[in-house]
């Protein structure tokens, strides 16, 4: 496996003496779906802004695709990443879907003659082709977030960061975005870094980084990290549903493996049931 993001001893504080991010190190593998999990105020959104170079780190290193982030390399680093923020309204820059997708292309000095093809291609990819001339007020939250993703894809990055991108959406919007992101991860081998407090989303990812009070508390495969019940509860997060059930059943003396994935749990339970 090849690492695409490397964070070494990163520290940052909004105030002089309080560190919001305190000596954090982690790596993200190319093509993985990684979640950074933490409660509100754990510093997880600050990490996203540091990675994008929107905030200036106090100390430590951020290396993206082999390039260390600095003032000189800012645009090289940003070109490898796209970020979808929480509020769908506040990141819609153009006055129509078409113009919004074009915004990043304009910044990268793409030849205007080529833009229409690029815009059409990525609008189709996120299923927004019929809405190209719509204004943002006529779109749902989920549609706006899909436009944001199209705008990012048009700039062909290799990493997409989702900074609680679905937390303001209704279930329909959430499902749309989740399906799209998983498809990009699978088909295009896009590296996904999702910042969230949704434990069920984390349970389905490849790698989990658990954050609390600006520290990495734990990291690893979800089945390792998310089964540490006491730790998860201490961080004001929820235990995955499947784990609650499998753990309860074990206490009743039923031999079943601990699970965080509901589908696998259903399969195992049904096997037990049919053996009986």
């Amino acid at each position: 496996m090849e690492k695409i993001i490397e964070v070494k001893h990163l520290s940052f504080g909004y105030d002089e003496d309080i560190l919001t991010i305190d000596d954090i190190s982690f790596q993200i593998q190319k093509g993985s779906y990684t979640t950074i999990l933490g409660h509100n105020g754990s510093g997880k959104s600050t990490i996203a802004k540091l990675l994008m170079g929107l905030l200036e780190k106090k100390s430590g290193d951020i290396i993206v695709g082999g390039i260390p982030l600095s003032e000189e390399t800012l645009s090289q680093v940003r070109n490898q990443m796209g970020i979808v923020f929480q509020n769908p309204d506040n990141q819609f820059i153009g006055s129509t879907v078409r113009d919004d997708i074009a915004f990043g292309l304009e910044n990268n000095c793409v030849d205007p003659a080529l833009m229409d093809d690029i815009i059409n291609e990525y609008a189709k990819k996120v299923n927004m082709y019929e809405f190209l001339d719509h204004e943002p007020t006529k779109l749902s939250g989920g549609q706006k977030q899909r436009v944001a993703i199209a705008g990012i894809l048009a700039m062909s990055p290799s990493i997409i960061i989702l900074d609680e991108a679905t937390s303001m959406l209704d279930p329909r919007g959430k499902n749309e975005i989740n399906a799209l992101v998983h498809q990009l991860n699978k088909d295009k081998n896009m590296t996904i870094l999702s910042i969230t407090h949704d434990i069920e989303e984390a349970a389905l990812s490849d790698y989990v980084i658990l954050l609390s009070d600006g520290h990495v508390v734990d990291e690893g495969k979800p089945e390792d990290v998310l089964m540490k019940k006491d730790e998860i509860e201490r961080l004001s997060l929820d235990i995955p549903f499947a784990y609650k059930v499998s753990e309860g059943l074990q206490k009743l003396g039923i031999s079943i493996t601990n699970q965080i994935d509901r589908e696998k749990l259903v399969k195992e339970l049904c096997q037990l049931h049919s053996k009986k």
């Binding site: 609650k244 009743l252 339970l269």
Partner: peptide, 23 residues
Amino acid sequence: NGFHIDPSIKDINVLVQEIGGQL
């Protein structure tokens, strides 16, 4: 897949008991 559990259960502990009972 063969279980007969009351779908209106809303408490996870009740559910666990029910699955345990049926197994």
